[in-house]
Amino acid sequence: MSRISILGAGAWGTALALSLARRGGHQLCLWSHSPALAEQLHVAGENLPYLPGFTLPAGIHVTSDLPAAIFEADILLCATPSQHLRGIISHIAPLLTRNQIILSASKGIEESTFLRMTQVVASITETPCAVLSGPTFAQEVAAGIPTAIVAAAHDPRLAQTIQRDFSSPSLRVYTNDDVTGVELGGALKNVIALAAGVVHGLNLGHNSAAALITRGIAEMTRLAVACGGRRQTLAGLSGIGDLVLTCTGSLSRNRSVGIELGRGRQLDDILAGMGGKVAEGVRSTHAALGLAARYGVEMPITEQVDAILHHNRRPSDAIRELMSRPGRDE
């Protein structure tokens, strides 16, 4: 039996808690930064703001006390928005022990530093850190629909520990030692999903969507390889798998934001209507461009997404810009 604390009671953290509870054999704690949400989870027995319709088993201990949540936990599963990870790890770092594991399930790049999530953790603590990524919608994981994900760590034994503790009849966990490739695949696909949503919002059809996704994975792969990741990782679950899901699935927040942008709505209005839910690609786009500039990598789709998000470029003009680029070999 492992003691697993899930830090972050949004849709994804709650879904992972439900998956682990369904698997059985662990002591589980779900931490919410909001005392009001923690109280609501106690009273209603479900996460009404973020993941309604799924009953939390009584065996999941819910708290808003962060030190209590991590006390004697074997695995600290971080499912917070990526831009909040540094603050949480900084807060708990003095309390961590040598035997604990940090598992990042946040898909993003830190906006101010261009660091991946494991790099953020490593800049604060020497606690071992792994990554959980892949094509996953929280609602489907919560419902027990068969899902395949990736556990990545530089130490194969660490990845195998996550594989053993998280695998279940509805969750198949693969291992990988390419942390860079797995993390960048999970973060960059959100940016491309925003663009895919724009294509849908402009009613451009299936040809445009297929081209966007294909050129998107090429763009993601260029940056991941430049940063030290492996090309084959981006052809796997955390790359093309997650990209296809997020670019085509109706449950994708990033795609949904892109659709509304394509229809002419303003970003601030779209985000204000999301009820506190996060579309990671909005913040990761700027960071992805910063990382690309650092390594001299060309990312035309990401550039146009950034122009739409932050420089008031009309979505139709962004598409026209992409289509009028000089010809090149595939």
Rank of each mutant, 00 (worst) to 15 (best):
M1Q: 02
I6L: 15
G8D: 01
W12K: 01
A15C: 05
L16H: 15
L18H: 06
L20N: 00
Q27I: 05
L28Y: 10
W31D: 04
W31E: 01
S32I: 06
S32C: 05
A36D: 15
A36G: 04
L41W: 12
A44P: 01
L48T: 15
L48A: 15
P57R: 08
P57D: 12
V62M: 14
D65P: 11
A68P: 04
I70T: 01
D74W: 11
D74A: 08
C78E: 00
G87P: 03
I88N: 00
I88H: 01
H91Y: 08
T97S: 13
N99C: 02
I101C: 05
S104M: 12
S106G: 03
F114S: 11
L115R: 12
S123K: 07
L132Q: 00
G134M: 05
G134Y: 04
G134A: 05
T136V: 12
E140V: 01
A143S: 14
H154E: 13
P156N: 07
L158M: 11
A159G: 05
I162K: 03
D165T: 13
D165Y: 03
S167F: 11
S167H: 09
L171D: 04
Y174F: 15
Y174A: 04
D178S: 12
V179D: 00
G181R: 06
L184H: 06
G186A: 13
L194V: 15
A195N: 11
G197T: 09
L204H: 03
L223H: 07
V225F: 11
G229F: 12
Q232N: 14
I240Y: 11
G241C: 09
L245C: 10
L251F: 14
L251G: 06
R253A: 15
I259L: 13
R263S: 14
Q266G: 03
D268N: 13
L271Q: 04
E280D: 05
R283W: 11
A287P: 02
A288E: 06
A292H: 00
E298G: 00
A307H: 08
A307F: 08
A307Y: 00
A307T: 02
R313E: 14
P315H: 04
R320W: 07
E321G: 03
L322G: 03
M323A: 11
D329S: 14
E330A: 13
